[in-house]
C-alpha cells in the first residue's frame, strides 16, 4: 500500500505574524517558513505505519513554487520515499488543492491520503474533507490514534465531547490532530540520503486541474492591541477592579 502525505509550506508557528502595511496579506519576506505542523504530524504517522510494515511507500506532495521543494526535502529526510511538487503560483484555495490531490490519487492509487487537519496559515480545515468527497471515499478527520487491519482503519477522533472512534474502509482520507504523535527530528545523514531521493515536478496544467476562485480576500488587519496591565496596591483594590469590570 502507498500513503500519500500532503505538505504545505507555511509561516513558522513561532513567528509573530505581521500584516503587510497595505493590508494586502501577511508579511512572508525574510520570515521563517516551515512545514505546516499538522502535516508534519501526518507524515510522522505515515512513516510509523510504514515502519510497522503496514505500508510499502510514503509519497509526499506539495503545491507551490520551487520554494516548496525545501519542505519536500525535509519530508524526504524524515523518511518519505519520493516527492511530488505540483508547481503553481499565487493563491491556492482549498478546492484547488483538493482537485490537485485527486489527480495525484488517480495517478498513484494510494491506500491512504494523509493530510493535516488544517493549515495554520488560513485555518480553512477543508482540503481533506473536499478530497474525500471528490474521490468518493470515506474520511476520518481529527485523528489522534490510527490503527490499520484487514483493509480498514480504526481512528480515534478528537471531538468536542472527547474521543470518538470510527472505522473506515480503505482507501480513505485521514487528517491528523495535534496529539496523534510527536514528529521526529531529521538526522543529518538522512538529509544527505534525501538528496538522492526522487523529486518529480508536475504542474496544475499537466494534471489538468481547474483552479477554483471562489474565495476573495478583501482585506487583512491585525488583531486589536491589548491594553497594558495595571499594578494594584492591595487585594481590596484587585477585587474592586475585577468587580468594576464585571469579572467577579
Amino acid at each position: 500500500m502507498k500513503i500519500l502525505v500532503t505538505l504545505k509550506r507555511v509561516v513558522d508557528y513561532n513567528v509573530r505574524v505581521r500584516v503587510k502595511s497595505d493590508g494586502s496579506g501577511v508579511e512572508t519576506d525574510g520570515v521563517k517558513m516551515s512545514i505546516n505542523p499538522f502535516d508534519e504530524i501526518a507524515l510522522e504517522e505515515a512513516l510509523r505505519i510504514k515502519e510497522r510494515g503496514e505500508a510499502e511507500e510514503v509519497i509526499v506532495a506539495s503545491i507551490g513554487g520551487d520554494e516548496v521543494q525545501q519542505q519536500l526535502r525535509t519530508g524526504l529526510a524524515m523518511g518519505a520515499d519520493r516527492a511530488i511538487q505540483v508547481s503553481a503560483d499565487g493563491d491556492v484555495q482549498p478546492l484547488t488543492a483538493a482537485r490537485t490531490f485527486l489527480k495525484l490519487v488517480e495517478k498513484e492509487e494510494p491506500g491512504i491520503v494523509f493530510l493535516g487537519k488544517q493549515a495554520i496559515d488560513d485555518d480553512a480545515n477543508q482540503t481533506g474533507q473536499m478530497l474525500a468527497a471528490l474521490w468518493d471515499r470515506p474520511q476520518a478527520t481529527f485523528a489522534s490514534k490510527v490503527e490499520l487491519a484487514d483493509g480498514k482503519a480504526t481512528v480515534a477522533r478528537e471531538v468536542d465531547s472527547g474521543l470518538e472512534t470510527i472505522e473506515v474502509d480503505l482507501p480513505a482520507v485521514l487528517t491528523s490532530d495535534l496529539r496523534l504523535n510527536e514528529p521526529r527530528f531529521v538526522k543529518l545523514p538522512e538529509i544527505m540520503k534525501a538528496k538522492r531521493k526522487p523529486l518529480e515536478t508536475l504542474s496544475l496544467e499537466d494534471l489538468g486541474v481547474e483552479r477554483a476562485g471562489g474565495i476573495e480576500a478583501v482585506s487583512y488587519e491585525p488583531p486589536p492591541q491589548r491594553g497594558g496591565g495595571k499594578v494594584v496596591e492591595s487585594v481590596d483594590e484587585l477585587v474592586s477592579e475585577l468587580k468594576s469590570k464585571g469579572l467577579l
Binding site: D12, Y13, N14, K32, S34, F185, V186, K187, L188, P189
Partner: peptide
C-alpha cells in the same frame, strides 16, 4: 558521529 538540524523554530527550541 551523529547530528540533526532544526526544521522549524519549535524544533530549534526543543534542541
Amino acid at each position: 558521529a551523529d547530528g540533526t538540524i532544526s526544521q522549524s523554530l519549535t524544533q530549534a527550541k526543543e534542541l
